[in-house]
Design a protein around this nucleic acid. Structure first.
Length: 190
DNA sequence: CTATTGATTGAT
DNA sequence: TCAATCAATAGG
């Protein structure tokens, strides 16, 4: 198992979203290490009305337009953060939203941070996994794998992918840009 | 300046 | 079904 190279993200956003399924997201903190397997993602494209980047670059969404592999963490609904990774070359505003993880390691830490003992509730939503891994907004606009937050790709990553409409957006067509591992119990909605 | 919305979650 | 809770955005 090895860390994903940054040029992994210099590719079609939908392809990156699918390729991330089955990879491991790792965050190291002073309290310990937490690891989750990526089981659900969504792609956000530059011409997509649901994407923050659709109206051009702003102070908030500029990480989406930065180098491939740049972390984009945004604050929403007054209380939640969501975690994305920028894709394609610098100047193009596209990203993959990590929507759900299967908890692998650091379960006790996750339970404490999420204030629940229900394993299925730890990481089955974009704001939940940010809480469970304690992903800091300080990492916004910095490259993945260069700080405490890393993604590893397993040596033989054979999984079955289901494609579906995206969740929780009102603008824009319900494009088939949501991807998750078939039959996995930890996706945000069945 | 004020009003509305939102890539959400958790409680009722 | 709805409240929490605030940054971004649209409108005046």
């Amino acid at each position: 198992m090895k860390p994903l190279p940054l040029n992994f993200f210099n590719n079609s956003t939908a392809e990156v979203a699918k390729a991330l399924l089955g990879c491991y997201l790792v965050n190291e903190t002073p309290q310990g290490e937490a690891i989750g397997k990526i089981v659900e993602t969504e792609a956000y494209l530059s011409d997509d009305p649901a994407s923050h980047s659709s109206k051009g670059i702003t102070e908030r969404n500029k990480p989406m337009f930065s180098h491939p592999g740049t972390i984009y963490i945004y604050f929403t609904y007054g209380m939640y953060h969501c975690f994305n990774i920028a894709t394609r070359e610098k100047g193009i505003g596209e990203a993959v939203l990590i929507r759900a993880l299967e908890p692998i390691k650091g379960l006790e830490l996750m339970k404490k941070r999420r204030k629940t003992d229900n394993i299925k509730e730890l990481c089955n939503g974009p704001a939940k996994l940010v809480q469970a891994l304690d992903i800091s907004k300080k990492l916004n606009n910095s490259p993945i794998n260069s700080s405490s937050l890393k993604i590893f790709q397993p040596d033989n990553n054979k999984i079955k992918i289901t494609t579906a409409k995206r969740i929780g957006i009102s603008k824009g067509a319900e494009l088939p840009l949501r991807f998750f591992i078939k039959d996995n119990k930890f996706v945000s909605k069945p």
